[in-house]
Design a protein around this nucleic acid. Structure first.
Length: 301
DNA sequence: TCCCAGGTGTCGC
DNA sequence: GCGACACATGGG
């Protein structure tokens, strides 16, 4: 196990992990336990310091590797002040920018992100977390993770589960997958897992495609439409312009940007969003999403 | 009991 | 090309 300490600027770990872009991190002892790829990781932020315990894959896995892993996954190299400054200057965007200070779009493994978002359609965030957990526990690999020392229990460890590979899920069945509460999404996940496992869909090779080509390829996969394709582009391919429109973002757009349009169809909303929110539209979208979800119940944003 | 959720696929016009 | 509808599941 390697312990690394990083003093990140402009980063809020809890804000980032609770914003609905990733679903498997669990809060334990004021920190978060999860995996980065297949590496068990415990990470905690105190003040200006990010402290991570990264399970070493081998003895050659150095503290430097651990640090690079953390910095890459949490995208600590993104120039957040410049990104936020590129957002449009309007009332709701300014409020979201203020509310979501330190929120970063992280770099998720492609298959894990794709599979999780196939499970996300017509599901609340809490349910997506349940599905992600069930898939990991049923099909993933259990690994030991070290927890920080605790006054009552001292140093100890617990198990975390990797996200199952496409190969593993391709070998399962729709019936088995449905046991993870996937419902009708089980067939989509299985079909896409088989395409990825066979190599017919080569997620890594798609890295070099243009935004439009990548979007097209993703939409060819079963269970993937425009919205989920944009989520995968944003959260796994680092296409920071991709702008997923879900029910929350649609609500924000209609309420704040098209307040008097009785009917503004989706293609019009897409066209507007792709232009108005600029080169980091995906970041702007995530800030609006998290802000709207957090405060909508209190009073309509 | 009813409504809703980080939507997609299909069908009819 | 657009609108309507079905599709599973669980929390509030």
């Amino acid at each position: 196990m390697k312990i690394t300490e990083i003093p990140p600027r402009d980063f809020d770990l809890a804000m980032t992990l609770n914003s609905g872009q990733v679903f498997h991190w669990e809060r334990i002892r004021n920190g978060f336990l999860g995996t980065i790829g297949d590496i068990p990781t415990y990470v905690k932020q105190r003040g200006e310091v990010l402290r991570a315990r990264v399970a070493a894959a081998s003895s050659r896995y150095s503290e430097k590797h651990a640090q690079v892993t953390i910095e890459h996954y949490f995208a600590l190299d993104h120039r957040l002040p410049e990104i936020c400054a590129s957002f449009p200057d309007d009332q709701i965007m300014n409020a979201a920018r203020e509310f979501c200070r330190g929120l970063r779009i992280i770099r998720q493994p492609k298959w894990e992100c794709l599979a999780t978002f196939i499970c996300s359609s017509m599901k609340q965030v809490v349910h997506i977390r349940q599905i992600s957990k069930a898939l990991r526990e049923r099909f993933g690999i259990a690994l030991k993770a070290d927890l920080p020392e605790d006054r009552s229990s001292g140093a100890d460890s617990c198990l975390v589960h990797t996200f199952p590979s496409a190969e593993r899920l391709a070998k399962s069945s729709e019936k088995e997958l449905r046991k993870c509460a996937l419902g009708y999404r089980a067939a989509h996940l299985l079909a896409t897992a088989r395409l990825v496992d066979s190599g017919e869909a080569d997620l890594d090779a798609w890295q070099v495609l243009s935004d439009a080509e990548l979007h097209h390829q993703l939409c060819e996969l079963p269970g993937v439409g425009a919205k989920i394709a944009n989520c995968v582009m944003l959260f796994a391919y680092e296409r920071l312009r991709a702008f997923p429109i879900d029910v929350w973002i649609e609500r924000v757009l209609r309420h704040h940007y098209f307040p008097r349009a009785r009917k503004s169809n989706m293609s019009r909303l897409r066209e507007f969003s792709e232009g108005y929110f600029g080169e980091h539209g995906g970041y702007a979208q995530q800030y609006l999403f998290h802000y709207a979800r957090a405060i909508w119940r209190k009073s309509p944003v």
